[in-house]
Amino acid sequence: DIIVVALYDYEAIHHEDLSFQKGDQMVVLEESGEWWKARSLATRKEGYIPSNYVARVD
């Protein structure tokens, strides 16, 4: 699995987006352009995240 960590807070604009806080970790389900589908490890919610707001966890 690809795990990413949020570098900034993000508040969902569209209903299919996933809100998150800086430091939250998410599993990337699908990488497509600038918006990736991800699942929050904390809340288990799924949605689209801006890929430039996150960094991969090695």
Rank of each mutant, 00 (worst) to 15 (best):
A55V: 08
G47M: 00
N52V: 08
I3A: 04
N52L: 07
G47F: 01
H14E: 11
I2P: 04
I13V: 05
V5K: 03
F20M: 06
P50W: 08
M26E: 00
S51V: 11
S40C: 10
E31P: 15
E11I: 05
A55F: 12
G23L: 03
G23E: 09
H14D: 13
L7G: 03
I49T: 01
M26A: 00
Y48A: 10
V57M: 11
D24N: 06
E16L: 11
F20S: 00
L41R: 08
R56E: 13
E30Q: 12
E46L: 09
Y10R: 09
A38S: 05
S19P: 13
V54T: 07
Y48K: 13
Q21L: 12
L29C: 13
H15V: 14
A42Q: 05
A55L: 09
R56H: 09
Y53A: 11
I2W: 05
H14C: 06
G33Y: 02
A6F: 02
R44M: 14
I49K: 01
V28W: 02
S51W: 09
L7W: 02
V27D: 02
G47R: 00
K22W: 00
G47W: 00
K22Q: 11
W35Y: 08
V5A: 12
S19Q: 04
S40F: 06
T43L: 06
Q25A: 04
E30D: 12
G47V: 00
S40A: 14
Y53C: 09
M26L: 11
E11H: 15
G23R: 03
L7C: 07
A55K: 05
R39K: 15
L29W: 08
W35K: 15
Y10N: 01
V54G: 01
G23Q: 01
S51M: 13
E46K: 09
E16R: 13
L41A: 10
V57C: 12
M26K: 00
K22M: 07
I2E: 04
H15F: 06
V28D: 02
L7E: 13
L29V: 10
Y53L: 14
R44D: 15
A42N: 15
D17T: 05
I2M: 10
S32V: 14
L41Q: 08
E46R: 06
N52G: 10
N52A: 11
S40T: 08
D9E: 10
P50D: 12
V4H: 12
L7S: 10
V27S: 06
E16G: 10
I3F: 14
F20R: 00
S51N: 09
I2S: 06
D9K: 07
D58W: 02
P50K: 14
E31V: 08
T43Q: 14
R44A: 15
P50N: 08
A6M: 01
A12L: 02
F20H: 01
I49S: 00
Y8I: 10
M26T: 01
L7I: 08
D1G: 14
N52K: 12
K37V: 11
V28K: 04
H14Q: 08
V28Q: 01
E31Y: 03
I49R: 01
A55H: 12
V54H: 01
A42G: 14
S19E: 08
S19N: 05
A55S: 10
L7D: 05
K22Y: 10
L29F: 06
F20Q: 01
Q21S: 13
A6R: 00
F20T: 00
Y53Q: 11
M26S: 00
G47S: 00
S32P: 07
S40H: 14
R39D: 00
Y8S: 09
R56W: 07
S19D: 07
E46G: 05
Q21N: 09
G23D: 05
P50Q: 08
Y53K: 06
P50Y: 12
L29H: 03
H15E: 05
H15P: 15
D17E: 15
V5G: 04
I49P: 01
Y53H: 08
V28G: 00
K45M: 14
S40V: 10
H15D: 03
T43E: 10
I2G: 04
Q25T: 13
I3N: 05
I2T: 04
V57W: 06
N52I: 09
E30S: 03
S32R: 07
L41S: 11
D17K: 15
V5S: 11
V4S: 02
S40Y: 02
P50R: 13
T43V: 05
V5D: 03
D9V: 01
I2R: 05
V54C: 06
